[in-house]
């Protein structure tokens, strides 16, 4: 692996141009590392100085300058729950159909794949416009956690489907033939063998979806709204953590400390949720594949 396949053929390895190029490449890499450390260090230092247990559980006061983010965390998790509850079963179903029930190169399946890829490129603010027009107004859900969650579900669905489909189609065909030889129906082969076998890809898709949905702001501003009270039901408006950060930094003077602490919590939340998804999926799927 020395030089990774590149033999240094030049006898003048030490020429100035060569050295300059090496310096440039290392310099660019160092610059990227420095920028990342700047962003993360800034969030860590500013966030930690404002963070306390009280901040995590208390309700916001004085537009968020004082108090905490308790109700906002609850809203964030409820929105995410709605999004996952809608997107995961539907996404898995479509991925199974694309990978297991369609012929390779079939026209209908390919046009659905193309549509999904197009949907994956639509900007999040456009999902926000759509969610406002469709869920909030047309379906009459108003500014609510339900409307926001369903909008996010639409947004994360395409990438989730394509990731799961890729995972399913990577499963070795011997597993399918084996299931068939044992006289299993396709339905039970999918449920007991193929889905568990594709678990790593499903978890990867889940993590991508959770990351995008938890971080999303633009699609939520005019679907789930700004209200920072504790939500009483899914039909109440609720403010997501990312929206809170935006509001604190743009519209509330003196809100920067609370904004940074919220940003730290947001990044921490994404890490925790990803770990949880990984752990749950492994537990659930490994038990199924062993017992079936």
């Amino acid at each position: 692996m020395a030089k990774r396949g590149l033999e240094d053929a030049s006898t003048a390895a030490g020429t100035i141009a060569e050295r300059l190029f090496t310096l440039l490449v290392w310099g660019a890499a160092a610059l990227v590392v420095a920028m990342l450390l700047w962003v993360l260090g800034d969030v860590l230092v500013m966030g930690l100085s404002h963070l306390s247990w009280e901040f995590i559980v208390a309700a916001p006061e004085d537009a968020g300058r004082r108090g905490g983010i308790g109700p906002i965390l609850v809203s964030t998790l409820l929105i995410l729950l709605v999004a996952l509850a809608a997107a995961v079963p539907l996404g898995l179903a479509v991925a199974v159909w694309l990978a297991e029930f369609t012929r390779r190169g079939g026209r209908f399946a390919n046009s659905i794949r193309l549509t999904l890829d197009v949907l994956a490129g639509v900007p999040s603010i456009v999902y926000g416009l759509f969610g406002n027009a469709f869920f909030s107004l047309y379906l009459g859900l108003g500014f609510s956690l339900l409307a926001g969650g369903l909008t996010l579900a639409c947004m994360i669905l395409p990438v989730f489907i394509r990731t799961c489909e890729a995972g399913l189609s990577m499963v070795n065909n011997d597993w399918r033939r084996g299931a068939l030889a044992l006289g299993m129906s396709r339905t039970s082969a999918i449920w007991h063998i193929l889905l568990p076998a594709a678990a790593p890809a499903i978890v990867a898709g889940l993590i991508l979806g959770i990351g995008r949905a938890t971080a999303e702001t633009a699609a939520l501003i005019f679907t789930s709204g700004y209200v920072d009270r504790m939500p009483g039901s899914l039909l109440d408006s609720g403010r997501a953590l990312a929206v809170h950060i935006y509001d604190l930094s743009m519209n509330v003077s003196g809100g920067d400390g609370a904004a940074y602490a919220s940003a730290l919590i947001l990044i921490g939340l994404i890490v925790v949720l990803n770990t949880l998804a990984q752990w749950l999926a492994e537990r659930w799927l490994s038990r199924r594949i062993l017992n079936s």
Partner: peptide, 25 residues
């Protein structure tokens, strides 16, 4: 199952039509 899944897949693809339709509307 095959019928149900194909229906759901079609529904997902319809999302694009729905989005463009509501934007236009």
């Amino acid at each position: 199952l095959a019928r149900l899944l194909a229906l759901l897949a079609g529904g997902c693809a319809l999302l694009l039509v729905l989005i463009l339709g509501f934007l236009l509307l």
